[in-house]
């Protein structure tokens, strides 16, 4: 087959189509997982799903958290503490973040990290419905709540109307300033096992007369298989299985590609190519075709996302899919090269 006067080897076409399909599959999975996480976050009111509510009572020191937080930070990471507040006009919530936690979908700017959540400067992340209330001063955006200005560091939201669009998140210290230390909190951890340890630590660190009301018994209401089947594990397993199936077919196709390219490898051998140039030439040829397949996968994904409203793709999905496809492709190439090299093709 000739394209623009250049002959395209059959093996290259196979690799190209294979990577188009694998890339599309990875893009769909990445996009679906992200959408699933967002839906879960929305359903759980921005909590990850492993969170624990607790209340502090009788504390006489409004700054007691400033003694407690550093002690927890030293021992644990990847957790957040939220301060849900009742407000008639906005869904307001204070946020403390340490490490990597579930983040809402951001439309612009950044979500809270440790430096912006645990600060004496007032910071806010707004739901997109509040973007119209933002004012700009000295190149910075501000949101005014109860006659106090908060610097807006990011705008979050979803395409469809959701609770996230209505929320206003502010830094932890500002939230304590509004709600007072004796209030209800939500502890949210990335790793479910940590929730009880961090909860216990908070319980221990708030000393008399302050008291922490928190239930620290682990709930085991479902056993092994039931827990497995009740969770999102079925979908996740299915995604992994689909990916494995496509990857195996790509392995097979890469083997076929190596077979079709025998002529070239023999010509290299006759010409006295060293191992390094051979590897370089193989990698160059393979990545160019796989890359073209990936680009075709992205184009197809864009077409699908324009036709099907439920499928949506963002730049991060493309980056993640690229990383996964590159990793998968490299793994397959190395495996096939080693096997073929042993056969002395």
């Amino acid at each position: 087959m000739k394209v623009f006067g250049k002959k395209i080897p059959r093996g290259n076409l196979l690799i190209y189509f294979s990577f188009t399909v694998v890339s599309l599959c990875i893009l769909l999975i990445v996009s679906a997982v992200r959408a699933e996480n967002v839906t879960k976050l929305i359903k759980n009111s921005l909590y990850s799903g492993h969170q624990k509510s607790f209340t502090i009572i009788n504390s006489e020191d409004e700054k007691q958290w400033e003694n407690v937080i550093p002690d927890i930070e030293v021992e644990y990471e990847h957790f957040a503490i939220y301060v849900p507040m009742r407000s008639s006009d906005v869904a307001l919530r204070g946020v403390y973040v340490n490490g990597d936690i579930e983040q809402p979908p951001m439309l612009s700017g950044e979500y809270f990290d440790h430096s912006t959540a645990w600060t004496d400067q007032r910071k806010a992340v707004l739901g997109k419905n509040h973007e119209k209330d933002v004012s700009v001063r000295d190149g910075k955006k501000y949101y005014r709540y109860n006659d106090t200005d908060y610097e807006v560091i990011g705008i979050m939201g979803t395409k469809e109307e959701s609770r996230i669009n209505q929320m206003v998140l502010i830094d932890f210290k500002s939230a304590i300033g509004i709600a007072g230390i004796n209030t209800r909190y939500v502890l949210d951890t990335k790793n479910e096992a940590n929730i009880y340890d961090i909860g216990q630590k908070i319980y221990d660190l708030f000393t008399y007369p302050a008291e922490v009301l928190i239930g620290l018994q682990e709930q085991n209401d479902s056993t092994g298989l039931a827990a497995y089947l009740s969770g999102d594990m079925i979908m996740d397993t299915m995604y992994v299985m689909i990916l494995i199936s496509f990857s195996l077919s790509t392995v097979l196709i890469t083997f076929i590609w190596f077979r079709f390219r025998r002529q070239l490898f023999y010509a290299w051998k006759l010409s006295g190519y060293r191992k390094c140039p051979v590897c370089l030439e193989i990698a160059k040829r393979f990545y160019v075709i796989a890359g073209a397949g990936f680009v075709a996968g992205i184009i197809l994904m864009f077409i699908i996302s324009n036709i099907v409203p439920d499928v949506d793709i963002v730049f991060m999905d493309v980056c993640r899919a690229f990383g996964m496809t590159l990793g998968l492709g490299t793994l397959i190439l190395c495996f096939c090269y080693v096997v073929n090299n042993n056969k002395k093709l």
């Binding site: 002529q263 023999y266 010509a267």
Partner: peptide
């Protein structure tokens, strides 16, 4: 070699 071993593409 007999069958030339040329690369088709």
């Amino acid at each position: 070699v007999q069958y030339f071993a040329l690369v088709d593409d």
